[in-house]
Design a protein around this nucleic acid. Structure first.
Length: 260
DNA sequence: CATCTACCGAAC
DNA sequence: TTCGGTAGAT
């Protein structure tokens, strides 16, 4: 919003959030516990950081640099997956435009501050979107993968199948997500970490790769991210940080970003 | 196994 | 011209 507030949707709820010296002040159509749940205010981030520092003291400066970071817990894995489908090989401004474009295909759910807010479109709706329509909206080659990925999810059982991945072992759920068109190892790990509650998933993007190579594998710096090296980073994080591996990734990611 | 290239727009 | 995940070829 122009006034610095943030207006957004998660699943079937909208939130209008402002920062104040006393903390977050917000309006929403959801019960009061919904935003704290979305931002994991019910979790003890300081304890997470203590776990990180106990396992890796060299994370000290990164933990300090990542102060204020929240790892979100979005409610709908479908919404999460298709938003992440927009992020591959892409920049933030364009991602935002694409996500808003997808959202506009969903059912209107509220009118807030003059903005019409929409639920994220259903899998059926996404599967039926003509590729040319998305091309015209600037989706580029993702215009083809988005409807195909929606079709692939429907073939496997739709939303129930997707939500069921939260109960499967992480490695198995990762393999299942890789079968979706346009979803590679990084996007699969993002969906596992944020939407499916697999807190030991470690998405490796360009920033995490750079930070990891600098700190732990200097010989890899000018090499490419192969499937083997990708997996090795996640395994190393899980061996070192256990259930905090995903949080360690978040801290590494944000500290790298903020150092640029 | 790893490396290369195409994909599409944005930013340099 | 470089950047950035995925997919397919080599």
């Amino acid at each position: 919003m122009p006034d610095g507030r943030w207006l957004g949707v998660d699943g079937d709820a909208w939130f209008l959030v402002a920062e104040s010296p006393e903390g977050l002040v917000y309006e929403s159509d959801a019960p009061p516990e919904r935003l704290p749940a979305l931002l994991r205010f019910d979790e003890d981030v300081e304890a997470w950081n203590r776990d990180l520092l106990a396992a890796a003291p060299e994370f000290g400066p990164r933990v300090a640099a990542a102060r204020g970071l929240r790892m979100m817990r979005p409610s709908d894995p479908v919404e999460e997956a298709f938003c992440f489908l927009c992020t591959s090989n892409n920049h933030l401004a364009r991602i935002g435009a694409m996500v808003r474009s997808l959202a506009s295909l969903g059912e209107p759910m509220a009118e807030v501050q003059g903005h019409t807010l929409h639920r994220f479109p259903t899998l059926e709706r996404l599967a039926a979107v003509p590729e040319p329509a998305l091309r015209a909206q600037g989706f580029g080659y993702r215009a083809a993968t988005i409807p195909r990925a929606a079709e692939a999810v429907l073939t496997r059982g739709g939303l129930d199948w997707f939500q069921g991945l939260a109960q499967r072992p992480r490695a198995e759920a990762h393999r299942a997500l890789l079968e979706l068109p346009g979803v590679g190892p990084k996007l699969a790990d993002c969906v596992l970490l944020f939407a499916l509650g697999h807190l030991d998933a470690v998405p490796v993007d360009t920033h995490v790769w750079r930070g990891y190579c600098t700190a732990y594998e200097p010989d890899w710096t000018y090499k490419s991210v192969t499937a083997r090296r990708y997996a090795a980073i996640g395994d190393a994080f899980r061996a070192r940080f256990g259930r905090r591996a995903g949080w360690a990734q978040q801290v590494l990611f944000v500290s790298e970003l903020r150092a640029r």
